[in-house]
Simulated scan of single mutants.
Amino acid sequence: MAEATQDQTPTYVEKGKAFDRDMNYIPDRITKDGRTPEHGPTDVQLWPVEPGRYRLVAAKACPWANRSIIVRNLLGLEDVISLGMPGPTHDRRSWTFDLDPGGRDPVLGIERLQEAYFKRFPDYPRGITVPAIVEESTGQVVTNDFPWITHDLFHEWRDFHKEGAPDLWPAHLREEMDAVNKRVFTEVNNGVYRCGFAGSQEAYDAAYDRLFTALDWLEERLADRRYLMGDALTEADVRLFTTLARFDAVYHGHFKCNRNKLTEMPVLWGYARDLYQTPGFGETIDFDRIKAHYYVVHTDINPSGIIPKGPEPEVWLQPHGRG
């Protein structure tokens, strides 16, 4: 990410370069009794699962944070892990709690998420990202490693899942699901950003081709199954949904992902509406916040700051025919 002065919004496009996401996050894990987990990074600080100890800070505007809100809902962890919600826009310094009275998170008492990061790492050198989990008693950030946050909400907090919570990580599908998740992340979740933040025509063209190759693959894969992994909802669906939900409102125009709209891909559009209408999904989507985030924060792509009025959100409530 290119530098900006402290009070400016950041710049995202580096002329002549392809977009390369920084995937270095605070790798700590929250596990049952602080145990060593079977999957993922283990040479990290381990924190114990404990209801009421942690606050998930997640902006509805952000797709990576949105997935954590959905998983928390699906598993019934609302009374176990509290939720703090920053507003949709931010500057280079941090996400801010401008939706809360007085502009402060009511539990953590902070104006900027940056304060929780600096409380633990005074010289934290990277971006202040959401989702982040913060320890309520100390106000210190625990982790912002978004892929493992939702993974661990399922595997490590099982004792506190609601009755009938979905099996988001079926053991017999683990290997195939890891492969599907990898392709969805690299080609779709991050693929739209590679288009939007491309710094050259060549980088954009390559990113565009990769994105739509993957979307065509998904259109074909979902033609004979309701969900990505078969007949049951998994986290693979959560991960894809947050990109699809933003596609026509943001990525099609703002990020130049304009071969076609989501509404013009009949299988993916039906699938996306199916998920949107599933409890735990649609109520986490706020199109006004989503559009405000992208069109206001990305001043190097949209210098006017004008936020488009459409598309109409009511189309997401049309029958999907995938039951």
Rank of each mutant, 00 (worst) to 15 (best):
Q6A: 15
T9L: 14
T9Q: 15
E14K: 15
K15Q: 14
A18K: 12
Y25R: 09
I30M: 02
T31A: 05
K32A: 14
K32C: 12
G40V: 07
D43R: 10
V44D: 04
P48H: 02
V49R: 11
E50V: 10
R53G: 08
R55Y: 04
L56I: 09
A58S: 13
K60G: 11
A61N: 03
A65C: 07
L83K: 08
G87H: 08
T89H: 01
R93F: 06
S94F: 01
W95C: 07
L99D: 13
R104M: 12
G109R: 04
E111D: 09
L113Q: 01
F118T: 14
K119V: 03
R120Q: 13
R120L: 11
R120E: 12
D123N: 14
V130A: 07
P131V: 10
E135V: 06
E136Y: 01
G139N: 10
V141S: 01
T143H: 06
H161Q: 04
K162T: 04
P170I: 13
A171V: 14
V180D: 11
R183Q: 12
V184N: 05
E187C: 08
N190F: 06
F197I: 09
S200C: 08
D205G: 03
A206C: 05
D209Q: 15
L211C: 04
L215N: 10
L215R: 02
W217K: 09
E220C: 00
D224Q: 11
M229V: 06
D231G: 08
A232M: 07
L233F: 00
T234V: 03
A245G: 05
D248G: 06
H254A: 10
N258V: 07
N260E: 15
L262E: 12
L262I: 10
T263E: 14
M265K: 14
P266Y: 07
A272K: 04
R289H: 15
I290P: 03
K291L: 04
H293R: 09
V297T: 15
H298K: 07
I301W: 01
P308K: 08
P313L: 11
E314A: 15
L317S: 12
H320A: 00
